[in-house]
């Protein structure tokens, strides 16, 4: 087959080693330039769509006044207070589901229901139960994160290869040793994928909870600036949140490469 002859110029460009990053970069620059021109010249009302120059100025103001830092710290703390226990609880629950039929039949339907239910709809209740302070935000984060971690841990453990367990059993390993040295490390790549899912859901959870009712935090700021119709500040805050999520996922991938290097080519 004459594959090469039939390739278009575009195909060939996008296959060159550095071409893809290059084309990506150009498209981002073009997009920002167009946005700037359209917004700054009021072709579309700039209070609705803002524009890069204004957003940069807003970012500088928010950062230099200390407003952004203080609120980000609040959100980060709530996130950590919810996410860290969710990792532990999620893995333990997932292990329980995978290893005990009773636990599975008792709780798994509940968990699947929780996974599909819109957690945000529960935020008002959680505020009633845990108050308007940071506890209700941490609980929201926890609930958002614990479900995908538990479900993935269950999947990961149940897909553990019988040969790994058999090898350890043959040496007379205890049940605990089999869990720690064969089942958990074997399930690690899938648990990690669950953590990545959980980060996304937890960030949405903590921001949404703050937007509903709170006295500080990035979600609170988004709420305030959107009431005031300030598009530029909202873009700054949304960018900050997604930047944080991006960083978390990146860190997780690095951790995964350390914990499960075998998965890369297995």
């Amino acid at each position: 087959m004459a594959i090469n002859a039939s390739k278009s110029l575009g195909d060939r460009l996008s296959e060159a080693p550095n071409a893809r990053t290059w084309i990506g970069g150009v498209s981002v620059v073009l997009f920002l330039a167009a946005w700037q021109v359209i917004g700054a010249n009021e072709i579309v009302r700039s209070d609705l769509i803002s524009y890069p120059g204004e957003i940069a100025a807003a970012a500088y103001d928010l950062a230099s006044s200390g407003e952004l830092g203080a609120n980000a710290l609040t959100t980060l703390r709530e996130f950590a207070q919810g996410f860290a226990p969710a990792i532990l609880a999620g893995i333990l629950l997932g292990l329980g589901f995978a290893l005990s039929r009773l636990a599975r039949s008792l709780f798994e339907p509940l968990f699947v229901a929780m996974y599909t239910a819109p957690l945000i709809a529960f935020v008002p209740l959680l505020v009633v139960w845990f108050g308007v302070g940071s506890t209700s935000k941490a609980v929201t984060t926890f609930l958002a994160a614990v479900v995908p971690i538990a479900i993935n841990t269950t999947t990961g453990v149940r897909e553990t290869q019988e040969s790994w367990v058999r090898a350890l059993r043959a040496f007379g390993a205890t049940r605990g040793q089999i869990i720690v040295k064969a089942i958990l490390p074997g399930a690690m790549p899938i648990i990690m994928a669950g953590l990545r899912l959980a980060i996304g859901r937890a960030i949405v959870g903590v921001i949404a909870a703050e937007m509903y009712v709170s006295t500080s935090g990035v979600g609170r700021m988004i709420q305030t600036y959107s009431t005031a119709g300030r598009a530029a500040e909202i873009f700054v805050l949304v960018g900050e949140v997604s930047g944080f999520g991006f960083m978390c996922v990146w860190l997780l991938r690095r951790l995964e490469n350390r914990l499960a290097p075998w998965r890369a080519r297995a």
Partner: peptide, 17 residues
């Protein structure tokens, strides 16, 4: 089972990590 009788398996049964 115990280390007094060590097994070698057809599928190797190594731990990939």
């Amino acid at each position: 089972p115990g280390p007094d009788r060590a097994l070698v398996f057809q599928d190797f049964a190594l731990l990939p990590w």
